[in-house]
Amino acid sequence: MDCRIPEHELIACPGCDLLHHTVVLPLGARAECRRCGYRLYTQKPQGIERPLALTLAAFVFFVLANTFPFIAIEIQGITREISVLSAAIELYHQGMPGLGILASAVIFVFPLLQLAGMLTVLVPLYTDRANITGCKTLRFVSILAPWSMMEIYLLGVLVSLVKLATYAHVTLGVAFWSFAALVITNTWITYSIDRHDLWRRLESLS
């Protein structure tokens, strides 16, 4: 096999397949593809510690959001209280089991698997231990990413609350604020990670 150029010093742009030499970036800098502008990689500060801390925080918010009452409404003296998952469960019981399962997957199961997956990847990297499942888990997390829709659910919650506010008295529970915090933390995790860097770290450990 002809291997004049060592492969680890090259990167192919995922957007247009153009080859680039990788260079060591200063902190906070970003490398973009010369041809299509795709963000190739960045130099994030504390690339392991920060996402690890945020993932742990997200776990706490996740537990709180799914144990405490989410929203309570009162119409004509009748109060009704729901949890985060109630919307999905109600769909299931109202003759739409498929949609109910889909909804619980995108607002509960997939986000939970993603957080668990991130921990499985980040903890061994943090402690500098070799991790045989790390690469497979990170692949799984990457494929799952677009199907996690907590932030969209939060927008749906806000819209339906505005819709109901004129007819009913709405009370926001502990779970609502935890869920909002979870969405913010989750987005923050995405921005604190550089995937290219994470993959190369996994590569050097194995």
Binding site: R80, A87, E90, L91, G95, L99, A103, L155, G156
Partner: peptide, 26 residues
């Protein structure tokens, strides 16, 4: 983000389920 309408519908189904007085079905 198009899924927002589905979530709104599902939340209204879950919240406005007041027995005989008012209900929302998917």
């Amino acid at each position: 983000w198009s899924m927002v309408d589905i979530f709104v519908m599902a939340l209204l189904v879950a919240l406005v389920n007041m027995g005989g007085i008012a209900s929302v079905e998917p």
